[in-house]
Each structure stands twice: as structure tokens, then as C-alpha cells.
């Protein structure tokens, strides 16, 4: 009896230690967020004083009151009500992310369905090509994208960012992972019952492949909300930029804006992350599926 109890204790303690060690890196998530949130509530002078050493290199180390001396909504107020520029950029981000995701749904999902359901030899070659393209980083595709966009006179318009992303092959691969789960026999029996191909796609494919599609959307949102390389290369006018490029433009004297804007940029991502973590994980697993 005693021996059993000792063993139980041993397991309990071991688990406790393991959990503590594993949860430690959570600090690396919590501290940055805490910094951003406290900074957002800090008064302008307090921020300037605390941050001056970092950005001017003079004086003592950075000073940070984890509890602001005079908490204020001033930063949010002036950002949201007195900086119309911020709204333009926020809207740019929403617009570009939205257009890209809708475009991927319209183009990518049917393509994934075609690869997953209709196996044929030439299709397999095309699919391999899609996978290869998905693995090339943006920097390798940048010049190709530019050549087309320039020819179509789309440079310095938001279409320059949207269109190439719509035809990204990554979401095709993720949705493919979801569609592959549907048993072929089910589709065959629907066909025998006289259902048309479009009908099968709509009534069987979409409902059952929902997981893959949502996974692609969640991964896509996190990627495109954070868009940097493409707008930096293809958008010259700053009023076309997304939020993700605006933040670094803020000088440290206006740090209050930077913190408030950071928190506002973060909110949609956190929301999607919390709502869609299951799909995020599923998407990562689909991305790792070997053909």
C-alpha cells in the first residue's frame, strides 16, 4: 500500500516538474504582450522619458513602469479619433486580407477538389508543380511577379499584392488535405444516383472538406494580416500600405501611438487564433502531409 502511494507521489511530482518546465516559455509570450498593453496606457511623457535611453543611446537603461503612473486612454483616443491615416491603413489591411482570402476560396478550393477527387496522370504532374511552387519563398518569386504586374500596369495598386496571393498554391495544398479524407466510395455512389459533379462538390465536398478550407483560411489570415514583403516591393504610395508597414514608420517620440496601434493590430490576430486554434493545428498537419 505504501509503495503504491509513494509511486503515485512520484508520478505527481514528476508531472508537476515537467509541466512547470514546459510552461516557462509562455513567459516569452506573456511579457511582450504585457509590454505592449502597458505601453498603450502610458502617458506620453512617461513613455518618452522611459524610452529615451533606448532610442538615443544616452543615459541609463530603459525605464518601464509595469503599472503606468497615470494610466490613460489618451493614446487610443488620439489614434482612433485624431489620426485618419490610421483608419485608411487599417482599412487597407482589411481590404487586402479579405480580397486575398475570398480569391483563394474561389480559385484554390475548386482546384484542390479537382486534385483530390479526380486522379489522373497529367493532373499528378500539375499537382507536383503546385507543391514545388508552394515551397519557393517570396524572394524567388518577386522578380517574376514584378514582370507580370508591370506588364499589366498593376504596379503601385493594391491588386499587385492581391492577385499573386490569390493564386498562391499553398491553400490548394491545405484544402487538398481536407478533401482527401472523403471516401471515394461515397462520391461514386452519389454519381450512380445521378448527381452531377457540381452538385457533388457542393453537397458533399464542401461540407465534408470544411476542415481543410477553414484551416487554409486561418493560416492565410495570420499570414496576410502580417503582409510585408509584397507591399514593400510593389506599393510605392504609403496611403496604399497595410497596417503592418505603418507601425515601423512611427518615430519613438510618438511611442504612445506605436503601442496603441500595436495592440489594435494584435487584436484581430488574437481573435482568429483563439477561435481557430483547432483549424490552425489541423492546417499545420495538412501542410506536413507528404503527397
Amino acid at each position: 500500500m505504501d509503495k503504491k502511494k509513494a509511486r503515485e507521489w512520484y508520478i505527481f511530482i514528476k508531472q508537476g516538474i515537467l509541466e512547470t518546465v514546459l510552461i516557462l516559455p509562455a513567459l516569452l509570450v506573456c511579457i511582450p504582450i504585457l509590454l505592449l498593453v502597458t505601453g498603450g496606457f502610458m502617458a506620453r511623457d512617461e513613455l518618452r522619458e522611459g524610452l529615451a535611453p533606448v532610442f538615443t543611446g544616452m543615459g541609463d537603461y530603459i525605464q518601464w513602469n509595469w503599472m503606468p503612473n497615470y494610466p490613460t486612454f489618451e493614446n487610443y483616443k488620439s489614434l482612433l479619433f485624431e489620426t485618419p491615416q490610421f483608419f485608411v491603413l487599417f482599412w487597407n489591411s482589411v481590404k487586402m486580407t479579405g480580397c486575398i482570402l475570398i480569391g483563394q476560396l474561389l480559385m484554390g478550393v475548386p482546384a484542390a477538389w479537382s486534385f483530390a477527387v479526380y486522379r489522373f496522370r497529367s493532373g499528378k504532374a500539375v499537382f507536383t508543380m503546385y507543391v514545388a511552387l508552394m515551397l519557393l519563398p517570396f524572394q524567388v518569386m518577386m522578380l517574376s511577379n514584378y514582370l507580370v504586374l508591370d506588364r499589366l500596369h498593376l504596379m503601385n495598386t493594391q491588386w499587385a499584392v492581391i492577385l499573386p496571393a490569390v493564386f498562391s498554391t499553398f491553400p490548394v495544398f491545405i484544402c487538398y488535405g481536407g478533401f482527401r479524407q472523403i471516401p471515394a466510395a461515397m462520391l461514386e455512389s452519389a454519381r450512380i444516383d445521378g448527381a452531377g459533379e457540381l452538385h457533388i462538390f457542393w453537397k458533399i465536398g464542401l461540407p465534408l472538406g470544411k476542415g481543410g478550407i477553414l484551416s487554409a483560411m486561418v493560416l492565410g489570415f495570420l499570414e496576410y494580416w502580417n503582409l510585408m514583403e509584397q507591399p514593400l516591393a510593389f506599393l510605392e504610395s504609403k496611403e496604399l500600405w497595410p497596417l503592418s508597414l505603418y507601425l515601423p514608420e512611427i518615430t519613438w517620440q510618438q511611442a504612445g501611438y506605436a503601442f496603441a496601434a500595436s495592440v489594435i493590430t494584435l487584436i484581430p490576430s488574437v481573435f482568429v487564433f483563439l477561435m481557430g486554434q483547432e483549424y490552425l493545428e489541423q492546417g499545420i498537419i495538412y501542410a506536413g502531409l507528404k503527397e
Binding site: 516559455p25 509570450v29 509590454l35 505592449l36 533606448v54 532610442f55 507601425l247 495592440v263 487564433f273
Partner: peptide, 27 residues
Amino acid sequence: SFYLFPLAMPTATVAVVWKMVFYEKGF
């Protein structure tokens, strides 16, 4: 969730924090 979360953190916000941590007079 804690391990996955950095994936959702926009780079621009990470950059703000990193400057405060890694500059010479930083944290």
C-alpha cells in the same frame, strides 16, 4: 497554445518589443 501563439503575433508588434529588449540600453 502558448507555443503556437507567436505565430499569430504580427511582426510589426514583435519589432516594437524587440527594440526595447535588444538595443544597447534595453531590457
